[in-house]
Amino acid sequence: MAAEGQAIDALSQFALKPFLGGLGESVRLSQSNGHMLIALGLIAALMMWGTARRAIVPGRVQALAETAYDFVHDLVVGQVGEEGAKYFPLVFSLFMFILVGNLLGMLPYAFTFTSHIAVTFALAMLVFLVVTVIALSIHGTHFFSYFFPEGAPKLLAPLIIPIEIISYLSRPVSLAVRLFANMVAGHVMLKVFATFVVMIGGAAGIFGIFGAALPLAVNVALIGFELLVAFLQAYVFAILTCIYLHDAVHLH
């Protein structure tokens, strides 16, 4: 699977396969959906187990659950304001789902469901539609003044309004592409360098073993970098959701 002939096959890792062999095939469940279910199970387990004991001095799991909660809560309240706290469940669900999905993809044999644009674009459209509905329900038709900044000359309206509308519509696209591209790029790089290790190691005998150490070292560094990216991209997705919510609640 890694190197067939001399070609580096870095993209087959993103192909969809039935989850758990015959079982997934019979219910048409791909391993992408399977990993989403695993991620949901992990998040539910973390939050339920973490909040079950309600100890004054938290144990490890409770500390992790509380840290995650506080982190996202501070993010939402800091960005949207106190009235934004009611959108906390949305942002928390999105953040945890993407974070656990990204981290799950770092495990050997696991699949990264955030590396499919269908998944990230669905999440981004969810954010976009929710934010637009919130803005419309709070401000009504006044929401459309968002597309024309106050104080701009009326003469420029035919120029500014289409540009602002395109800019607004580009939000879900950039949100989806950013997450998708980061995850794909990271996993392709990991695969390429892992293939180098096998190719060089198998090619030149004793020198090959020493030569393979270099791409192996690169891969170790890349794993660390990918863990950072996994967290950072979930954070960026969450904070951009908060910024959009801020715009929806306050308009300007």
């Binding site: 696209v173 950013r178 904070i239």
Partner: peptide
């Protein structure tokens, strides 16, 4: 500080690139 911009010059460059391309894609699609 609100760090919505990625880390390092590569991250910033990537963010800016995605922003331009996504707006262009939406404009072309419309």
């Amino acid at each position: 500080a609100v760090k919505t911009v990625g880390t390092g010059p590569w991250g910033i460059g990537f963010r800016a690139g995605v922003e331009v391309v996504s707006a262009l894609v939406v404009g072309i699609a419309i």
